[in-house]
Design a protein around this nucleic acid. Structure first.
Lengths: 156, 156
DNA sequence: TCAGGAGTATCAAGTGTTTGACAGCTGCCC
DNA sequence: GGGCAGCTGTCAAACACTTGATACTCCTGA
C-alpha cells in the first residue's frame, strides 16, 4: 500500500528492492560524484575541497569568525580551527584580532590566499559550467527543486 | 564574460561572489540536510545511516563481498570491514565462506538483520515520502536531472 | 559594581575513515 | 607444473572530525 514492493512466495518482503531508485539515493550518488570530481581536480593544486570551501566563504564574507564559519559549513568549530591552522601555516589565511572583542579573531584572506583561491575557483567554475551546459535551461529548475527538497526536509 | 562578478575599484575581483548560488552548492546543502535528517531519525533505532546503507545493499544483492560492497558505496574495504564487524557482533549480518573461494567471504543478512532493516526502512520511506509529497509530479523530473548531472560529471 | 549569561576559542579523548603495506587464495599463461 | 598477475581481506599508522569540558571576553541587568 505504502510503496511498491516485489512479491515473493508469501507476502514476506518487508523491504522494497527499489531502494536504489529512490530520490535520496540519486541525490547522494550525484553529490558524491560531483564532490569526488572536485577533489580530483583540486588535488593538483595542492588544495582539498574543504580548503576551497573555507577560502571562498571567507572571501564572500571577510572578517568571519571561526564559530560563525562552523555554522555556515555545518561542522564543529574545532574542525574549522584545524583547517584554519593549516591554511594559516601556508600563508593563505590570516587571523586578526576583533576590533571590539579581544578574544574573538576575524579571518581574512592574504594575497597568496586570494591567488590560490582564484586558481581553485577556475577549476570549480569549469566543473560547474560542464554541468550547466549539460542541463541547459533546466539549471534553474534543478536548483529550485533542490531548494524545495531542502526546505521540506529542514522543517523536521 | 564567463560569469557575472562584482566590480570593485579596478577590475580585480577574480573570484565571483555568486559562489553560494551555484548548483553544486545547492546540491551539497540539500544532500547534507537529507543525510542529517536520516541520521537523526535513525538514531532512536540505534542505527547509523551507514549501517542502513550497508544492510539494504546486502539485502538487494545477497552474497556480496566486502570489496564489491566498498566499490558500490564508494568507500574503502577497511571501512566496510569496520561496519561489518559491528553489524556481525549485533547478529544482524553474517559472513559465510564463498563456495569456490576459501579466502573470500559472502555477506548475508540474518533474521534479526532483516527485522532491523525493516524498521529502519520504514523511517527512511517516511522521509522519502515527505520529500516526494512536497515535489508531487516533479519527482521524476528531479531524479532525471540528478542522473543527468551525475552522468555529465562521471565522464571526466 | 559586579555576578551571571552568551558567545568564542581551545585542549583532550574517542570514533570513523583513509593511506600504505602485506599475506592468502585462485586462475591463467608460459 | 610453476610463476605471476589479480583480487580479497586484514593489520598498523596517519588523518579528520566529533563529543565533552574548560577558559576567556564582552555585555547586561539587578
Amino acid at each position: 500500500m505504502s510503496y511498491p514492493y516485489r512479491v515473493t512466495r508469501n507476502d514476506e518482503e518487508p523491504v522494497g528492492l527499489d531502494a536504489l531508485d529512490r530520490v535520496t539515493w540519486a541525490l547522494r550518488r550525484t553529490e558524491l560524484a560531483v564532490q569526488t570530481l572536485k577533489e580530483q581536480r583540486l588535488r593538483p593544486l595542492g588544495m582539498a575541497a574543504a580548503h576551497y570551501t573555507l577560502l571562498i566563504s571567507v572571501h564572500a564574507e571577510p572578517g568571519l569568525t571561526g564559530a560563525e564559519l562552523a555554522r555556515r559549513l555545518n561542522v564543529t568549530p574545532q574542525a574549522i580551527a584545524s583547517l584554519v591552522a593549516r591554511l594559516e601555516s601556508r600563508g593563505q589565511l590570516e587571523r586578526r584580532e576583533h576590533p571590539r572583542h579581544r578574544h574573538i579573531q576575524e579571518l581574512h584572506l592574504t594575497d597568496a590566499g586570494r591567488e590560490a583561491l582564484r586558481a581553485a575557483d577556475a577549476v570549480i567554475v569549469g566543473i560547474e559550467r560542464r554541468i550547466t551546459d549539460g542541463l541547459g535551461s533546466e539549471t534553474a529548475r534543478l536548483r529550485a527543486l533542490l531548494d524545495q527538497v531542502a526546505e521540506a526536509v529542514r522543517e523536521g
